[in-house]
Design a protein around this nucleic acid. Structure first.
Lengths: 210, 210
DNA sequence: TCAAATAGTGAATCATTATTCATTTCTTGT
DNA sequence: ACAAGAAATGAATAATGATTCACTATTTGA
């Protein structure tokens, strides 16, 4: 004699939640966390503003989830590249290339993940994200040191330098100002830029001229 | 038969302006542009809120000036280090050390200058700032290439990697979260960190193991 | 001391957004 | 078809902070 949550409703709610997440993701990918508005996301997802708050405690919570999601994708790709065949330098180079190319293809999101200032809860996710990268690269560098293809060094510190060198190389030329004033289809040739960055990174790592 | 701006007044106004600039600078150095409030700055400077607007068109304009000021200091120091004796690698290393050490001593301001998102007018200043660095380092690298102590490469791109590697190395460990939870007197020993970063950078540049 | 002109003031205004909550609409089992 | 819940709504609220502007105070030269 009353309403009882049924499978159908569970699914419908899950779909709404998914739609909200997806639209929030798009908003962030388009112009960063700072300019993503709750009302805009709601409109995009075809729900009322208040509905967002039935699925998430707050904007921060929603954004933390978006961040986690975006992050996971990137980290997975890098981990994948790192787990292929070859010695550590080869695998590291492949991973760095993956990292750089993906960031170049989605510069706004890349910037948001790397450098945009965010609320505490989101910043917490970022810490985990940096950690994840640092650990992945650090592990590969350490393996390289053991293998002997990379000279002894502070693996964690070098890992940080790698991320920094790449990030700066992307954040600069692909900052909003640069990105906006560009033709629609993003089919630039990234090869030279990426190669140039990678040479610097690999030399920094190995101390050997490429 | 009327008020006419006199030397005395000119000086007094200049002093007030100077006080505003100085307090704004302190606020930004303490917690970044984003959390620097016009009202706080006014209170600190001992003037009314409205007075700020007799000296500056807007908050953006004030901040642009602060940015320019802070930037000039840094660029000058680096330029100074680059203009000493020695071959290009020696001079570059000295300049990078200067850059890193100064940033480590003022991590919040360094972060604001390098990575904090800011309003358009301030962002414009940042462009000039990046440009100034890029040009300084690029020039030194090009000289090194001519001298023969640095192998041929895209000098501008390498310059970007240098800035990125250093910046990331600092932004991470010295982000607000890290910085806040530290004992008062900032007399840490930066040597190992800086040396580690510099090795990576110089190797990236020269492709030669240090 | 006076009048003209400028400088300084800070409470009020305006703009922007996240969040709430009273109300409406939908679901469910009988 | 009904009543009990649950979900959805979105206009109203609240909080924040830059900016304004009507007013007061100060300075100046006569």
């Amino acid at each position: 004699m009353a309403y009882r949550e049924t499978e159908k409703m569970r699914i419908r709610k899950a779909e709404a939640r998914q739609r909200i997440v997806s639209c929030a993701y798009q908003c962030v990918a388009k112009s960063g966390f700072h300019s993503a508005r709750v009302t805009t996301i709601a409109a995009m997802a075809g729900v009322a503003t208040g509905t967002i708050y039935r699925h998430f405690e707050s904007k921060e919570d929603l954004f933390a989830e978006i961040f986690r999601l975006a992050t996971q994708r990137e980290v997975d790709k890098v981990a994948e590249a790192l787990s292929t065949q070859g010695d550590a330098t080869v695998r590291l180079e492949a991973a760095l290339r993956q990292f750089a190319e993906r960031a170049l293809r989605g510069p706004v999101m890349a910037w948001s993940l790397i450098a945009e200032p965010v609320d505490p809860k989101v910043e917490e996710e970022r810490l985990a994200y940096r950690q994840a990268y640092a650990e992945l690269f650090e592990k590969a560098i350490s393996e390289g040191i053991e293998e002997g293809c990379i000279p002894d060094q502070d693996a964690r510190q070098s890992s940080t330098c790698l991320v920094g060198a790449i990030a700066e190389s992307l954040v600069g030329p692909l900052s909003p100002a640069q990105t906006n004033s560009r033709a629609e289809p993003r089919n630039d040739n990234y090869e030279p830029l990426v190669n140039s960055i990678l040479r610097f990174c690999m030399q920094g790592l190995t101390g050997t001229r490429r």
